[in-house]
Design a protein around this nucleic acid. Sequence first.
DNA 1: GTCTATAGCTAGATAGAC
DNA 2: GTCTATCTAGCTATAGAC
Lengths: 206, 206
Amino acid sequence: MSDAVPDVARAEIVGAVRRALAKHGYARLTTKKVAAESEKSEAFFFYHYDTKDDLVVAFLDWATERSAERLAAIDSDDPVTRLFVACDVLVGDYEDEDDRGINVAMMELLSHAPHDEAFHDRLSAYKRSVIDELAAIVSLGIESGAFRDVDPEATAAYLLMTADGTTGAVMALGMTDVGEKVRERLFDYLTSTVLADGVSPPAAFA
Amino acid sequence: MSDAVPDVARAEIVGAVRRALAKHGYARLTTKKVAAESEKSEAFFFYHYDTKDDLVVAFLDWATERSAERLAAIDSDDPVTRLFVACDVLVGDYEDEDDRGINVAMMELLSHAPHDEAFHDRLSAYKRSVIDELAAIVSLGIESGAFRDVDPEATAAYLLMTADGTTGAVMALGMTDVGEKVRERLFDYLTSTVLADGVSPPAAFA
DNA sequence: GTCTATAGCTAGATAGAC
DNA sequence: GTCTATCTAGCTATAGAC
């Protein structure tokens, strides 16, 4: 994928970019601030990557991959559990500071995507893949009879958009009360509209 | 509100900031680029505002006010119509280039809010006011018997978060197909979960 | 491969004429 | 009030020692 940057170097770089983004945001990111988040010098970063933007793209590649893996790693054969946990993961956890920083940074890059093709391409592909993943879960549930006969793609898109919006208000603005209420409505939606009659939500979400 | 910047000057400035943000995004915004979007010189902007960030805040004040007014201006006494139209407005129109630019810019400022108190304060207040506005519509509908007895605040928050997330994917990434599907699911949600039995959505949304 | 030092530029902001 | 000209700081990126 990325042209032969050694794994240790990339890990160091991605970590420093991640911390610098969490501390200063993309709009105020400088290569000095990135270097300040590691033991390495500024030149170290320019040896491995050509430009500052390449550093950010390396972070973005890492972040999208990480998020996709977290979804894929949901460990259950039951479509009901998988769908609830997936939505839970997508909304995110405000208390997890690292996660919050990563999510806010991804959002800042997303909102800058109209002006940066690399951001646009990676984030469109990522969003698309999440929708596909959710749609696959929905399809499974329909086949198994646990879900109603909803439109998998449309339902997946709808769920992701709700989770995305919530991430913004909760992670970026700290409106945790809104987060709680939306979570409740979201799980209620799954229960009343996606789950088939007589199917219950997982215990943790009831 | 803002300390005595003449209305004509402010209009000129807000317009230039708006166009510069639409063209370059917040992360790449410079005062030179702002000035390039007007007939005025760079010094003109610094005569009326002390710092570059004050210019952006002036834009943000204008943008939040504009969005709030658009919601408040929905011209109907019928809670059903008002709720559907409000959601429609909140999701926004991808085809409207100005609206798209404004929405994407607001999103970029939102995602930078953890690092800028002025952004944080204005956007939290704005989001809160939209939730209040939506909740008021929901309460009205419940009183009139057009809506079920849902939780107005939670429902309002839930609807806004879905609209916000959709704005991101549609306006910033151009995923218009996702926008269509989410709109459909969103209006379906309103119809099946918020509207009382036997109440129909407005003709335009059926 | 990684460092220190610095080039070269552009940013935000100001001075002073009008 | 608005302009042109310009200052200074801080940025991205590179050169050259090790």
